[in-house]
Amino acid sequence: MRNSRTGWLLLSPTLIILLIFGFAPFLYVLFVGFNQWNVFSAEDGLIFNGLDNFRRLVFDADFLHSVGLTARFAIFAIGSEVVLGFVLAQMLTRNFPGKSLFRIIHTLPLMVAPIAVGAIWRLLVIPGFGPVPFFLDRWFDLQYQIGTYPDQALWTSVIMDVWHWTPFVTLTMLAGLTAIPKEPVEQAKVDGASRFQVFWYVTLPFLRPVLLTTVFIRIMDAIRTVDEVWMLAGGGPGTRFTGIYIWRVVFPRTDYGYGSSISIITLYLTIVLCWLLFIAISGRRKGETE
């Protein structure tokens, strides 16, 4: 009993902080989401409008478009990061000349703030001044203008995200790979398993918890991506992701009610997506236990 009380006492600062800075704001956003509230409207204050905001977003073409774009961004960026991260992590489990230097250089992007990453990439790709459009035009006669071609803006965002976050995936994968016991791998090889069979039946199952955690983190990051993409293209065509759309609704439009409802739905979609992914990767079904 005393142990339990001491435990709660020790936990209480964390719980209080979580309650104040995590749960209370969430409840507030939930409350605002059921109201019409624009500070520049003719009527002051919050006006309860039930589910109107949620109904509105179902028919909001811009919001739906932003969800579609975010999904494309997340799938391509995270997919590339996982594949690249795994390959690099495999590489780093072996010895090769310059490995330490490579590991340092490879990890550097992780240390750069997202806003700085966006600024660097903007300087690289800005039409008229950036080296990337210049050389693409000179060498391949390719018109590369992220302000004019939405697909180019989207792909540039994906590549920028991959550049920024692949090191994170590599490091987590590397931790997972080095934690795999040698015996099952060696046993599989002795039993005549091919490299692919070793990977599929031994490495991947051991790596599954790490993979799941990494993908979860990256999905949450990708869905709330704002700063670096904002710096890159200002939320222009091809990059008006959900996070940027929410920012536009809440800040320049000061439509706090509608912005809150979009935030709630985005959170809900993130949770559902992560849950579905959890089931898919872990293979857990209803009724199964640990």
């Binding site: 203008q145 992220i146 293209a233």
Partner: peptide, 16 residues
């Protein structure tokens, strides 16, 4: 217009 036009705000217009 210069290729940067579709990425230009008032600042970039002045710079161009």
């Amino acid at each position: 217009a210069p290729p940067e036009a579709t990425s230009s705000t008032w600042d970039e217009v002045a710079s161009s």
